[in-house]
């Protein structure tokens, strides 16, 4: 596939200032400054945690990147860097092409609102234009299979129905770059098959996919390149089968 999308991370470092309750307080900060630090000599309360270091990734259209690593290895942070939410303290990030991140499919859902209102809300949050929402509304509702229930408050849905609605909205996108934290698939057997089909269709249309997952089977099926993160560092980067074979042994 020929596309114009590209992602380039060069020498990226991400440091998190972790504030304890004292350093989040302006009063303490002033006392600290006014007393020349005498009152609170031991610590300023700001701990810097290096969450990603020396990250170099170049992606071009057609690449499907999987990210593996233990909990806390920096996977979600890396996804957020690619989505443009965190800007690195050092290094550069260049992302060309429109990018949608599906990190939490329940984002923006209001339990008191009806299904239809929630479709509108969620879609708006994902950056879909009002005209496009109107156009796709029926299709989304149709896909969710909720029928009449779409006019009922979201809180009255069974958890399966809630997931179906959230999925249906999240999957009405066609970005050039798709960033996902775990695969979206949900619902009963029948819905799951349709959801799977829909996801595959979306992924095949996107130019670049970045997917963080713990599932070997999923990654080997979807990705052609995998990065192994450990303590914020890339310790292996290569063809999916090689990295997965190493990681999952």
């Amino acid at each position: 596939m020929i596309g114009s999308a590209s992602i380039s991370l060069s020498d990226v470092y991400i440091d998190f200032p972790v504030f304890n309750s004292a350093s989040m307080s302006l009063k303490n900060r002033i006392l600290h400054t006014a007393s020349g630090g005498m009152l609170d000599k031991k610590h300023t309360g700001i701990v810097i945690v290096r969450s990603l270091q020396q990250i170099n990734i170049q992606l071009k259209a057609g690449e499907r990147l999987g990210i593996v690593g233990h909990n806390g290895s920096g996977k979600t942070t890396l996804l957020r860097v690619i989505s443009g939410i965190y800007r690195p303290v050092h290094g550069t990030v260049r992302v060309n092409g429109n990018c949608i991140s599906l990190i939490n499919i329940n984002l923006g859902i209001d339990p008191e609102a009806t299904g239809r209102e929630n479709v509108k809300l969620r879609a708006t949050m994902m950056g879909i234009s009002p005209a496009q929402i109107r156009e796709q509304m029926d299709e989304i509702i149709d896909f969710s299979g909720l029928g009449e229930f779409i006019e009922m408050p979201f809180r009255t849905y069974s958890s399966g129905m809630q997931l179906r609605l959230a999925f249906s909205v999240s999957s009405c996108i066609s970005p050039q770059i798709l960033v996902m934290d775990e695969w979206l698939s949900t619902g009963d057997k029948d819905f799951k098959a349709r959801a799977e089909q829909r996801m595959n269709a979306i992924v095949s249309k996107t130019e670049i996919l970045v997917l963080a997952s713990h599932s070997c089977e999923l990654l080997s099926r979807t990705c052609n390149r995998v990065i192994w993160l450990d303590h914020g560092k890339i310790i292996m980067d290569g063809p999916a089968e090689d990295v997965l074979a190493k990681y999952f042994t």
Partner: peptide
């Protein structure tokens, strides 16, 4: 449109019931 949709939503959430 994002501003108006989300702003309206805040009101609806608070007073829906």
């Amino acid at each position: 449109h994002v501003i108006t949709v989300l702003g309206m939503q805040d009101i609806l959430t608070r007073y829906r019931r």
